[in-house]
């Protein structure tokens, strides 16, 4: 026995493991490489073919000769205005909903709330417990609505926008205000923006709730213990602390909305307008829609190919710019908080 290693020779796997480890690492690395490769190919293709198109004329001039020449200026403007209105609608509503769900909704689920209500038979404060129960139901309904909304295909949003906003609301407004004349009952900026807002709402709500969740309960406690009301606590402590997360969620939603085409197909996008949109009731051109038109409706495929690539390039560049802005804003907010503002 003396002199022998005490490790029994029944463990051959011990020697083989380093090789297995390396194999796994290689596989993981391979998937990363593949993804990067794909990204590179797509972006590279667009960049090579589209960057050549870029010129001042391209960005600042409207299209000519049946979309086979000229620039895409109106599409840029249209996209920008659309996204702005969408943001102004979606973000406040989304944040407000998330704040209500997270801060004002009872923490327990409907079942527990119901049990508590039943158990309080004959004691004072029963009405309050009933209210709590109803509130929990509302919260469950809202949350499942948000979850379901997130899964709805974007074309369905488009149909909803057409049926509800344009025909129902718009048509009704026209009947009431303009005696049947079509003013609101057609596709335009506002209906398209609202439709897109609905699409991005779930993203904003979920991201905001996540951000609110990261604010420690102790912070709220400290504020309440100093004699602040719940709203004051939210306004002064919770929201500022959750701001980076909220901004991220906002940017995410906006990015997504800026790229969606299906919802605006029937709700306001036009393939050619000789004027820029000025009022909410105007129609608009849109980068994504322009891409669709150029690739499917072009009379001269060869001539429009470069314009197509250029448009895609601009669209992607805009998206990247948006995301970058979001990251920068978030980073600045974070560091400001760390220094204490």
């Amino acid at each position: 026995m003396s002199g022998d290693s005490w490790v029994p020779s029944v463990l051959p796997a011990y020697r083989r493991r380093p090789l297995l480890d390396r194999l796994w690492v290689a596989l993981l690395g391979l998937s990363v490489v593949l993804i990067l490769l794909a990204l590179f190919l797509i972006l590279g293709n667009i960049a090579i073919n589209g960057a050549g198109q870029l010129s001042w004329e391209f960005i600042s001039q409207p299209p000519r000769e049946g979309l086979t020449a000229g620039g895409i200026y109106p599409a840029i403007v249209g996209t920008a205005m659309l996204v702005m209105i969408m943001t102004v609608v979606a973000v406040p509503f989304g944040v407000a909903t998330a704040v209500y769900l997270h801060e004002y909704t009872p923490a327990e689920g409907p079942r527990l709330a119901w049990v508590r209500f039943r158990a309080s038979a004959g004691r004072k404060g029963r009405a309050k417990l009933l209210l709590r129960f109803v509130s929990t139901l509302l919260a469950v309904a809202t949350r499942s609505a948000v979850a379901n909304l997130a899964g709805v295909p974007s074309i369905v949003f488009g149909l909803f926008g057409l049926g509800f906003f344009i025909q129902f609301v718009g048509g009704g407004m026209d009947r009431a205000l303009h005696g049947g004349e079509i003013v609101w009952g057609q596709g335009n900026l506002i209906w398209a923006a609202l439709t897109l807002a609905l699409l991005t709402l779930p993203t904003v709500i979920v991201a905001t709730e996540e951000a609110l969740r990261t604010v420690a309960w102790e912070q709220r406690e400290a504020s309440l213990a100093l004699g602040a009301t719940r709203w004051e606590t939210i306004r002064r402590i919770v929201l500022p602390a959750a701001m980076p997360g909220i901004l991220t969620g906002g940017i995410l939603g906006i990015s997504r909305g800026a790229g969606e085409v299906a919802p605006i197909l029937f709700t306001g996008a036009a393939y050619y307008l000789p004027y820029l949109p000025e009022r909410l009731t105007d129609q608009f051109m849109h980068l994504g829609y322009h891409v669709l038109i150029l690739s499917t409706q072009s009379p001269d495929v060869e001539a429009t190919k470069p314009i197509l690539f250029g448009t895609v390039f601009v669209l992607l560049a805009l998206t990247f710019l948006l995301n970058l802005t979001g990251v920068l804003i978030r980073a600045r907010t974070r560091s400001k908080m760390r220094e204490g503002r």
């Binding site: 912070q219 406690e221 504020s223 213990a225 100093l226 004699g227 760390r338 204490g340």
Partner: peptide, 20 residues
Amino acid sequence: VALRRRVGMVFQKSNPFPKS
């Protein structure tokens, strides 16, 4: 709210706000 102004509280884990 008025009660909590008259009765201050300090917690186990210090919880200063992320402010100055």
